[in-house]
Design a protein around this nucleic acid. Structure first.
Lengths: 169, 169
DNA sequence: CATAAACCTAAGTGTAACACCTAGGTCAAC
DNA sequence: GTTGACCTAGGTGTTACACTTAGGTTTATG
């Protein structure tokens, strides 16, 4: 299978396949004649795994770690379980955050629909937003939705030379 | 107020304040003597707005659009309402996605806890993940959580020279 | 008053996970 | 035989900042 074939088969892009190949997650066979990359069934399996994991919100780094384990003959099952369980905790938190935000927005929109479009002074940008700012100050100091969702950083064995990095203190 | 003061007051970083200043969202006064930036109450209000909006998942571009409206004497309230309502639809979708993923993971973990740690053949990386891959193929072709959550791209009036960009076709 | 700690500036680089583009070679079809 | 669809490597662009560098400033202290 050539890149585009594989990509189409698993509903992703050729660029993505090339990316995973470049960073060493996929190991295709390279033709000596034309340099084309060929992926067999095993590599397709690997890609399938990667895509699933990404879909579940794991970082490429997490996946790299898992492969590093399993490629060295360890079962890696425990590692996978641990990472997934940890990830589940995060997803649950995100779920709650999203729910809170949803309610906040709905509440705000509901209130605003009852208010007239007051002409704004140069001071208050828009009284609708003032409401929002006021509401937000009631939210506990949790990480932003996007922040939380984009960071999985498997804190497995990486506290060597950089104990903490950005704990939004 | 100097950068760090402002940052601390609104629980963010000086770098973030400088970033918003550089891209033109904040307009501090620059001292002629030492080049220091000073932010008054109005700018603090603006930053508060920005942080709230970011917390709600709006992109910096969205915020730029809103400011562009309101800074030109329009109330902008309708724009703000529209953007927020659209954003709410997205958040609701994310909420549902997160819920689905949560259930998927819980289900998988539940099943795995009943299975032994089978030694993996070189073919199957880890049977746990096989389960996952199999389950995932039952998920409708929706955007990934992180993808959905990081893209807000206000498709307001921007269809000039780039109709579509990456509709994960 | 000297000096160190703490602050500031601009400008540059790094991050994640790809998408997109370029220049050029390859392959199948008409 | 040439058009169109495909491939390659390598480069840049994206988002929203964080971090680093190099150097000037202000404040606290001995």
């Amino acid at each position: 299978m050539k890149v585009s074939n594989l990509a189409k088969a698993l509903n992703t892009t050729a660029d993505t396949v090339r990316y995973y190949t470049k960073i060493g997650l996929l190991h295709p066979q390279k033709s000596q004649l034309n340099g084309y990359m060929f992926y067999n069934a095993q590599q397709q399996q690997r890609l399938s795994f990667i895509l699933t994991a990404r879909h579940l919100g794991f970082s490429v780094k997490d996946i790299t770690n898992i492969f590093h384990e399993t490629d060295n003959n360890h079962t890696g099952c425990k590692l996978v379980r641990d990472i997934i369980k940890q990830r589940l905790v995060e997803v649950e938190q995100q779920f709650l955050d999203a729910q809170a935000l949803m309610n906040l927005m709905k509440q705000a929109i509901g209130e605003w629909d009852h208010l007239p479009d007051k002409t704004p002074t140069s001071q208050s940008i828009c009284h609708l937003m003032d409401t929002f700012s006021a509401m937000q100050s009631q939210i506990p100091p949790t990480k932003s939705l996007t922040e939380t969702l984009s960071s999985t950083k498997a804190n497995l064995a990486e506290t060597e030379h950089n104990g903490e990095m950005h704990e939004n203190k």
